[in-house]
Nucleic acid binder design. Structure first.
Lengths: 234, 234
DNA sequence: TGTACATCAGTGAACGCGCGTTCACTGATGTAC
DNA sequence: TGTACATCAGTGAACGCGCGTTCACTGATGTAC
């Protein structure tokens, strides 16, 4: 809520930074009511500007939404890159951190997340959007490639691309079903992080990585609880 | 489009089966324009009835949507149950079939699928809806329990509940990201089915099941292709 | 440094539209006797 | 079997509302000279 003019509410005829303000307003509205529940007029109102003003900056509602998705992917890429940290201290640990970062992004940035994945705007609605999406995925793919290079000899494994898609899908599934802040979230007898971590470790074990102790850790730490799906069996 | 009166368009003052007709109409509209892009009035119009008529059968739009989601879960449960076929001919094969059925449902019934998972209606908006959702999940959970009973001794594994959640998440992730008929679908250098199957088999291998030949089969059958994410590396 | 002018960004009024919702109504159906 | 009546399901007109979009406009900003 701070524009480049500093005195509260005292903005002149020109807003000065309306494009940015509209993006922020829309983001807030999406967080509140979901990507379906925000309108162009609503964004204008929230930004404190007439309903006609947004047309100076965006062709229409979808154009604004695509901009948000694009920015979301850029931020997502940065988050994943930081989590990966070029594979430090070791590849498996860093890989697990990517999964955690994925969930964390979905939870802390639900508005971005739904604009990116649930708003219904086609991925290729703009080349910039598509490119941003690919760059984010490229982080996971690069990590998978490093992981693939480490698989023990003699173990059959799919292409690194496919490994990346598996991890992406698993993370996305967990995030969509359980890892959101909204009311549609399903309840779970464990944290989404534990669920994802255990799943990823079993997957890695299937690729020949020695991860037994970790899986066991997740196992015992979550098994005793119960929840709406019933009590977890021994 | 066939009501209980048989002559086309000749219906009297009473529709006779409006509740059902509204559900069908809404389902068609959701398939066309997504769950956000259908309105109560629209459903009434499609069903050939005045805008006020739906109020005799549904409290409001969300009530209708919840009914569709519930019916979707019931159908989903039936589909999964049939695919599981009580674990015949063997547990692993039947388990794989559940995954395929999941994807198939998402593709052939996108309207149900989005009403169930993407419409924004809370899972617990009605007890019937919540129960239907749980019954569908129970199929996967029962399968996971059978699978858990078969894990080789000495292999640490998570509770069957968690295994079920892993498979559900992976399937849901693949279906959401790649397995839909709509325009927002991301392109993939392989079929969603192959992706899911390979992932599930690696996961099962991580649980100690011998599945090498199968993973390898999926591997080589999909590796040569390339796509928008780049060429799959050797 | 000042002035004239072009460009730009936001205004506010107006429009048509479709939606949600209510209402008294009416035609059809079912049922008691 | 017929008749009277209650109940039910759909009608159509009406309402207020907010949205998307266009338009001539106007205030502010930047720039050429």
């Amino acid at each position: 809520m701070s524009w480049h003019k500093d005195r509260r509410g005292e903005r002149g005829y020109h807003h000065g930074n309306l494009k940015e303000a509209l993006l922020q307003a829309a983001l807030g509205l999406i967080a509140e009511k979901g990507p379906a529940g925000f309108t162009f007029a609503d964004a204008a109102r929230t930004a404190g500007v007439s309903a006609a003003a947004p047309y100076r900056h965006f062709r229409d509602r979808d154009d604004l939404l695509a901009s948000i998705a694009q920015r979301g992917f850029e931020q997502f890429e940065a988050t994943l890159t930081a989590a990966w940290d070029d594979g430090r201290p070791d590849t498996v640990t860093a890989f697990e951190r990517i999964g955690k970062a994925y969930l964390n992004f979905a939870r802390t940035e639900p508005a971005f997340y739904s604009a990116m994945f649930e708003s219904g705007i086609p991925v290729d609605s703009s080349p910039e959007l598509a490119a941003a999406g690919e760059r984010a995925f490229a982080v996971i793919r690069a990590a998978a490639e490093r992981l693939a290079a480490l698989t023990p000899p003699g173990v059959t494994r799919p292409p690194a691309m496919m490994m990346a898609l598996h991890i992406w899908s698993l993370s996305h599934g967990v995030a969509s079903l359980f890892g959101r802040g909204d009311a549609a979230r399903r309840k779970l007898p464990m944290s989404p992080e534990d669920l994802l971590e255990a799943g990823a470790l079993i997957y890695l074990r299937g690729l020949g990585f020695p991860t037994d102790q970790n899986v066991h850790k997740s196992d015992t730490s979550t098994a005793p609880k119960s929840g709406p799906w019933g009590t977890a069996p021994k």
